[in-house]
Simulated scan of single mutants.
Amino acid sequence: MGAKTVNKLAVPEATLHYEVTGSGPVLLLIAGGGTDAGVFSGMVGQLAAEYTVVTYDPRGNSRSRYDADATDECVEQSAADALALIDAVSGGEPAYVFGSSSGAITGLELITRWPDRVRMLVAHEPPCTEILPDADDARAFFDEVYDTYRNDGLMAADVVFMMGTGMDDDAMPPMEDLLPEYRELAERMQANAANFYEHKLLPFTRYQPDLDALKRVSDRIVPAAGLESYANLPGRPIAVIADHVGWPVVMFPGGHGGYSSHPAPFATHLAHLLKTDTV
């Protein structure tokens, strides 16, 4: 594994913090929600033995600061950020991409708009709930989370969000029980929470993927979900996408954040999929 380099990349209205480790084909890992590059730290070393692993803080999160005041997220811009990172690192070659949660939505938009730049996309539980048969209920739930944040604050919104998405079991231990590096990550995520609820939650969950466009590149899409979470709200949309593109959902260890809770088996499973170059 090569040494990690820490870099900055200027993109429209923001500057992205990104990290590069290892050598070989480029593998871009896209974090979701209010998380950042640090959520993949448990997997990077293992994956970097065979890949140039690129992780980054999505715009507005942690060390990827907006250049001006925050505005509501645009999924197209999020995908353009991912493309800019691929172009900066890959030397013109298409990249492998893994995205989870809203990071998977970014990946879906990326492969839809720039299919020639993605060698394979592993889309892990994208919460694009507008494609669900009960989309009205899902939309109402995320509206409730947003309204709770605006009216009652972060802690109340966290409770509604975690319980309604089945992620209440994924809560971190108390801050004082965490190792220093994980404490720093948890503190960054806490600091990102307001921006997530204010500017990212509704734009991403309202995203409607172009299912016909995805079907045209179905040989390069791996629909994925957590073994412990696929039946919950964030995991359910990938089953609809899988049915449309004609592939089964590939199950990964753990839940919605399995890459963090089960990093070694998760990385092993991901590396195995990438070697196939098709499902």
Rank of each mutant, 00 (worst) to 15 (best):
D72E: 06
G258M: 09
K275H: 09
E13W: 12
W114D: 09
Y230G: 15
Y182H: 09
A49W: 11
V54P: 08
G33K: 13
A239G: 03
G226A: 01
G255D: 05
H199S: 07
A95I: 11
D116F: 10
D219W: 11
G91L: 04
S90G: 14
H124V: 11
A48C: 08
G153N: 02
V122L: 08
R216W: 13
P173A: 04
P265E: 02
V145E: 00
Q77T: 15
M43W: 15
S78G: 13
F196L: 09
A37T: 10
P133C: 08
Y18N: 00
F266K: 04
D170L: 10
A48I: 12
Q77I: 14
L9C: 03
K275G: 10
E13G: 11
L233F: 15
E198L: 04
G92H: 13
N232I: 14
V75D: 08
A267T: 07
N7R: 11
P265G: 02
E176H: 14
N61P: 14
E144D: 10
A225Q: 04
L28W: 09
E50M: 02
F266N: 08
G22S: 03
H17T: 11
Y230H: 14
L233Q: 14
P263N: 06
W247V: 15
L85G: 13
A95H: 08
T21A: 02
D67N: 14
A264E: 12
H272W: 13
E176C: 15
F161A: 06
P126D: 02
P180A: 01
T129V: 06
G22A: 05
P180N: 01
V250S: 11
G92F: 13
R216H: 13
V89L: 15
G258H: 07
A31F: 07
L108G: 15
A10P: 03
I30C: 05
G99D: 06
A10T: 08
L132D: 00
L47P: 09
R220N: 14
A104N: 02
G91A: 10
G246Y: 00
G255L: 08
V53I: 06
S64P: 03
P248W: 08
A104Y: 05
L85V: 08
R206P: 05
P203Q: 01
L28H: 04
S41W: 01
Y66I: 08
D243P: 07
Y56L: 15
D177K: 09
L178G: 00
T35I: 13
E176Y: 15
A48K: 08
S229F: 12
Y146N: 10
A271T: 12
L270P: 13
L27Q: 00
Q208F: 09
A68I: 09
D158C: 12
T112E: 06
G99V: 05
G45H: 11
L110K: 01
Y182C: 07
E125T: 10
M155L: 13
G99S: 06
L47R: 12
L201R: 01
L211A: 02
V145G: 01
R59I: 02
H17A: 10
F161H: 05
T268L: 06
R236K: 01
A194N: 05
P237I: 00
G91W: 08
L83K: 01
S90E: 11
